[in-house]
Amino acid sequence: MDGTQFLKGDILIVDDTPDNLRLLSTMLIEQGYEVRSVTNGSTALMGIQAQPPDLILLDINMPGMNGYEVCQRLKANSKTESIPVIFISALNEVFDKVKAFTVGGVDYITKPFQVEEVLVRVENQLIICRLQAQLLKALQQERQLNQQIEAMATLEERHRIARDIHDSLGHALVALNIQMETALTLWQINPEQAYEFLQEAKQLGSDALKAVRQSVSEIRSDPLQGQLLEKAIATLTQEFYRTTGIPPECQIDLSYPLSNQVNTVVYRIVQESLTNICKYASATRVQIQIQTTAEGLLLVIQDNGKGMSIDSSGYGFGLQGMRERTANVGGQLEITSEPGAGCRITARFSRLAV
């Protein structure tokens, strides 16, 4: 391998058959992976402790300590529990798939090896690891930004910028997490569909990282990016449907023009509401009504989720942000909810504000 070639990942192969080690090592090294090989479980555990790999290919039937036992020990150790393990088994061997996944395996490969299958299964698991690392990095950067925000001189400015960061990143990060969870759920029953979810999650992860880096510089920009409100709301609802499978029922009638300020507030309320529903509501139905009249504008967002207890001192940061935004343009916002009875958010803006 050319020394300048990019190493795609560090892989440890554990197999007591030298021919298998040579075959797997060769095919993976040719694809740009860094590969280590050992022939028994105890040696593998020592090597993993000293230098944790990105992925482990683990033979099940080995003398002394079998693959199940090795995997159980890895998952019982906080330092190694997150390392993905792909089991290796021959077609003529007894392979307990249920046990393999119960002890912590993420996939399996059968002998004789098919090069294309090995490479696809290895890369898919590494993609999942990279996405998880991206999500963690995004969350860490968001925390760092929030810490910087809290260090600013004025409390009002601090809260305003924190709210904008929350609005712009919350939905993307929730969507990314849902895509990854769906992919992991589908992995064994429909790998092709799971791979599609992973590709979408990868794009969402890239978008979230980009948003984190740009959030401070773009904090005062127009969130609609010059779009009409109807189109911007349609984009939010499409993304919500893509990540939750729930198609919001939308009734939008903007017969009267709105000011840019009210457009922004309406957009932010819908965005925050959908994010909260996605994260907390466990809803199966969502309704959005936006209607302008000669008297002003009415916005209603309602879901049939698990609801919550409402009191004057119990509003979360997102709901409090809705109230502040609405009040800043002279509107009124009402939140009606009870445990088990869904949630209804109603915002009214007078004609003067609109």
Rank of each mutant, 00 (worst) to 15 (best):
G104T: 01
L23W: 03
R121E: 00
V115R: 09
V106H: 01
R285V: 07
L155F: 10
I335K: 10
L91R: 11
G3Q: 08
R36C: 05
V120I: 11
E196L: 13
L209Q: 11
E272T: 14
R323M: 13
T4Y: 11
G296Q: 04
K137L: 13
T182A: 13
V118H: 02
R73G: 01
A172H: 05
E181D: 12
T237Y: 03
A208D: 07
G32P: 03
A138Y: 03
V286H: 01
I269H: 06
R325P: 02
G9I: 05
L184A: 09
I246W: 05
E93K: 06
P191H: 11
Q49G: 11
Y267Q: 06
T235W: 03
Y280P: 05
T182K: 14
G47V: 01
V94I: 09
I56S: 00
Q287D: 12
E324L: 13
V38A: 05
L139H: 12
R121L: 01
L169P: 00
V35F: 02
E338S: 14
Q320K: 13
C250I: 08
A183S: 14
G318R: 00
V98E: 15
P18T: 12
D253L: 12
L139I: 08
G316E: 10
E192A: 14
R220I: 09
Q125L: 05
L176K: 03
L184P: 00
Q193G: 06
Q140P: 05
R213C: 08
N146A: 12
V120K: 13
Q5A: 15
L45P: 09
Q261Y: 10
G296H: 07
L209W: 03
Y241G: 04
E295M: 14
I301G: 04
I252K: 07
A90V: 03
Q271T: 09
R213L: 10
A162D: 08
I11C: 04
M152W: 11
R242M: 13
